[in-house]
Nucleic acid binder design. Sequence first.
DNA 1: CCTAAGTTCTCTAGCAACTAGAGCTTCAAG
DNA 2: CTTGAAGCTCTAGTTGCTAGAGAACTTAGG
Lengths: 146, 146
Amino acid sequence: MLTIGKLGDAAGVKVPTIRYYEQIGLLPEAERSAGNQRLYSRKALERLAFIRHARGLGFTLEAIRDLLSLSDRPDQSCAAADAIARAQLAEVESRLARLTALKAELERMVVQCAGGKIADCRVIEVLGDHAHCATDHCHPHADHLE
Amino acid sequence: MLTIGKLGDAAGVKVPTIRYYEQIGLLPEAERSAGNQRLYSRKALERLAFIRHARGLGFTLEAIRDLLSLSDRPDQSCAAADAIARAQLAEVESRLARLTALKAELERMVVQCAGGKIADCRVIEVLGDHAHCATDHCHPHADHLE
DNA sequence: CCTAAGTTCTCTAGCAACTAGAGCTTCAAG
DNA sequence: CTTGAAGCTCTAGTTGCTAGAGAACTTAGG
């Protein structure tokens, strides 16, 4: 049995985060010691590592909740898990596309800055006048802003 | 003079967001009509468009606050504006790198899913066992998670 | 056995950057 | 002059944590 600190070290998750996961029901309520401290089994460590890994891949806690409940029913079809992963992939791809466009525009801005006065600064000017802007990031959905 | 709704339409910003920007001091307090409604000048529209554009490029409101105060002093050096833009570019580049790695791992997960039962599902398995993971996204800084 | 340091406990509040809703007033069109 | 849209203020919610206060527990050294 591990204390919460050891569990956190083992899984690479901070202690308050573990308590937070328990609070929102992502982790089950931990067993307690005589002195009311949380104790964790190896299974709990696995579950937390799963969460950690999925968070690292950018899954939301909601998606992770779904994946966890799927993994509790190993006899069912994995279509749902596949769908969640594909949705996540699509999300990542769309962010990538947007970030690539942003990078191009930022590079243009920075390169054009001649190091003079603010009045002539391309950075300020480009930001102030959208006509200078080649990308469409000003329009409808800005999905890199969560 | 524009009402808040017209201003929002013109700049592509939602009405509550404009009030929020005023509340946090990013926009000055608007003039009011006899009936206490906000009225905006062309200058205010420019300022809001600037903010909108910078947000679209991923600048934080803090960075935008700095850029705005720089643009109020056109006779100063633009080194500071340049530095802010370069920092933003570096940030975008680092996110891009991470997202690219995530995309690769998600693709591996999804491709390997044979569509069988959960028990054999690669998606769940890969998430549960970090040894399957080629990238280092589990380690120290997860900067795509704001 | 006792004390001191280190963990852990609960609880509340805060972060970014908005978004949503309640309940009211004002404005513009017909 | 009425009606419906748009405006007002205020509070609270979102996501995924993080920070702090103040109390209790645990463990290693003397």
